[in-house]
């Protein structure tokens, strides 16, 4: 059997066109989940096929691609996806957020502010913010169409009644352009404010659930809350042990078996740049 060559970025042109049409619809209706005919990809559903299809549909030979998972370039799944595009599209890849034109991410938004020249592609496991309150697709579709979101606030109310706080810490629901409520993917709520008025285009791909949605640049994104229990960013009691940052999301690392802990920046590129800048300052 002869091995067949693959098209640029793996997907055939018809499929890319179909995905781009879905992306355009998504941009035209910010926060609305557009159904699309997700293809079987060479990585399993749940491992980023949605993000990969979106990236494959928009990437061109001159693009520079960065892929992160949990904020890091070197985690196994990020490595695997980056290698996939290097192999099937032969595009330049980078770990430097400022150099990338397309950033595909799982579960984090980069700490470095993005520009209008960039597109952020999120990997989404469950696109439907109402899913855990209402398992039926037929019903959630109607709820979005009629903007019937009371049940979302009921959930937040229950959290406060039970715990004294809203108990959602990631995949925190937000209202886009004052209309649709969306699930921003399992980013920590720490990252939610970055979605609001972002200069970059933000695209969300859910392969298994077959949905694409988008936040156009400079769109209003408001995390759900109550007036008297406003949305609060997570605060850390520590600074990054490597670069000293106090404004980035920190990973907790277990360093010994006596319970020793250390906190380091989740965004590895951000941390490295800060360390390099500090070293340069120290040298001067």
């Amino acid at each position: 059997m002869n091995p067949r060559p693959y098209n640029f970025a793996y997907l055939d042109e018809q499929t890319k066109r179909m995905i781009r049409r879905a992306i355009l619809k998504a941009i035209a209706i910010p926060g609305y989940q557009v159904p699309f005919a997700s293809r079987e990809m060479p990585m399993p559903y749940g491992w980023g096929t949605g993000g990969v299809q979106v990236t494959a549909a928009i990437i061109g030979p001159d693009d520079v691609l960065k892929v992160i998972d949990q904020g890091a370039d070197d985690t196994t799944n990020a490595v695997s996806i980056r290698a996939f595009f290097a192999k099937t599209a032969n595009v330049a890849t980078t770990t430097d957020t400022t150099q990338a034109t397309i950033i595909q991410t799982r579960h984090r938004v980069p700490e470095t502010p993005l520009s209008a020249e960039q597109i952020l592609v999120y990997q989404v496991p469950i696109p439907e913010p109402l899913r855990f309150l209402e398992p039926r697709e037929t019903e959630t579709r109607t709820m979005h169409a009629l903007a019937e979101y009371g049940v979302m606030h009921v959930k937040l109310y229950e959290d406060i009644a039970r715990h004294g706080h809203i108990a959602t810490t990631y995949a925190y629901p937000a209202r886009v352009a004052d209309r649709y409520i969306m699930d921003p993917s399992p980013i920590p709520k720490f990252d939610n404010p970055k979605l609001d008025d972002c200069p970059a285009l933000q695209l969300f791909g859910a392969g298994r659930e077959k949905r694409i949605y988008a936040i156009p640049p400079h769109t209003r994104v408001v995390s759900l809350d109550f007036e008297d229990h406003p949305f609060e960013r997570t605060k850390f009691d520590a600074a990054c042990a490597f670069c000293g940052a106090t404004d980035s999301f920190l990973d907790e690392v277990v360093v010994d078996d006596k319970g020793g802990r250390m906190f380091v920046c989740s965004d590895t590129d951000y941390c490295e740049k800060r360390r390099a800048a500090k070293a340069k300052d120290a040298a001067e």
Partner: peptide, 21 residues
């Protein structure tokens, strides 16, 4: 299988958020 097995992927950022709360 994709979704069940995806639980093996790193989820430590979200776990960190839960720990904090």
């Amino acid at each position: 299988t994709g979704f069940v097995e995806h639980l093996k992927l790193p989820h430590y950022v979200d776990f960190q958020a839960e720990l904090a709360l």
